[in-house]
Amino acid sequence: MRFHTRKWVKPEDLNPNGTLFGGKLLAWIDEELALYTIVQLENARIVTKYMSEINFRSSAKQGDIIEIGIDVIKFGTTSITLKCEARNMMTRETIISIDQTTMVNVDEHGKPKPHGKTSIEFVKDRL
């Protein structure tokens, strides 16, 4: 799995228990999946269609650095399906795993639009 981004757990990210609020982590993940999809499909109009079971496996505390990793499972005609994991960068302990998230490429009217992609592309290879 390729880990693409890091987030620093700050006081405003904590729940009343003093650990990372799950909703904050899910927002970070959804944003990272959207950014990854925008780059892969070369379209800024992307929506999250589906997210499978979310498995919270451990927690994080203030000061921890979280890494978010993504792997492509498959390319559909109008979508891309991704696997995601967030882990503690220092301990490598998995905090959350999501087996499948489907991101859909849409047109200016919000309707699914074919993207024509069949494999991962790296920006450096497009230049």
Rank of each mutant, 00 (worst) to 15 (best):
G116T: 10
V104L: 08
K61N: 11
I73N: 04
G18F: 09
M1V: 13
G22P: 04
L25R: 01
R87V: 00
F75A: 07
T19W: 08
G69V: 13
A34K: 10
M90E: 12
V9K: 08
L41K: 03
F21K: 07
G63W: 14
A60I: 00
D13P: 00
A86Y: 02
R92Q: 14
I80C: 05
T5A: 06
E42A: 10
W8F: 12
E108Q: 15
T102H: 02
L26M: 15
F3W: 09
L127Y: 08
E53Q: 14
L35P: 00
E42F: 06
G76R: 02
S79W: 02
G76I: 00
N88Y: 03
D30Y: 15
R57T: 12
Y36E: 08
T48C: 14
T78V: 03
I95C: 08
L14T: 00
P114T: 02
E53W: 09
M103N: 00
K124P: 04
L127T: 10
F21M: 09
T91A: 09
F3P: 00
T77N: 09
E93W: 10
E53I: 14
D13S: 04
W8T: 12
C84F: 00
R57K: 14
N15C: 07
R57C: 14
P16D: 07
I98V: 14
G63N: 10
L41E: 02
D71I: 03
G22Y: 11
T94L: 12
A27P: 04
T5N: 06
R6Y: 03
N15R: 09
K83C: 12
V72H: 01
V104T: 01
E108S: 15
D64V: 01
A44R: 12
K117T: 03
Q62K: 08
P11T: 11
V47F: 13
V9W: 04
I46F: 01
I120C: 10
K111E: 11
V123W: 15
N15S: 11
T37V: 00
K113L: 11
A44Y: 05
C84G: 06
N88V: 02
E12I: 01
K49I: 00
E67N: 11
